[in-house]
């Protein structure tokens, strides 16, 4: 069954803007975060590789659904609704 899903806004960090032609904010659709990332990959090839590793979110990439870190709300299974927004931010991290 095909269910149409709303397009939502996704904020793209500087480091991934080469994939979006420099755009800071793009749109994609999907019922779950996983589906949204699939759609992002269709529109901006190469993006999924930067977000996923072995089928999971990369440890040092933070993805937020509205104001929440998706790791606390189902990760790739997080459910997307109309009017939501996603923010992608690489972790700021390092070590000696």
């Amino acid at each position: 069954m095909h269910v149409s899903t709303p397009e939502i806004d996704i904020r793209i960090p500087t480091i991934l803007r080469p994939y979006t032609g420099g755009e800071k904010s793009v749109q994609a659709a999907g019922a779950t975060l996983s589906a949204v990332i699939d759609d992002l990959e269709r529109r901006f090839p190469g993006m999924a590789e930067r977000l996923l590793e072995d089928g999971k979110l990369r440890r040092f990439v933070n993805v937020y659904l509205n104001d929440e870190d998706v790791r606390f709300i189902g990760s790739l299974d997080a459910v997307i609704s109309a009017g939501d927004n996603i923010t992608i931010l690489p972790a700021v991290a390092g070590g000696s």
Partner: peptide
């Protein structure tokens, strides 16, 4: 920023503080 790792060998900005920062 708060070092969420609280470690002598690693640092990581707290995830929600990072969102607020940006």
């Amino acid at each position: 920023m708060r070092n969420a790792a609280m470690s002598p060998t690693f640092y990581e900005f707290d995830s929600l503080e990072l969102l607020k920062l940006y």
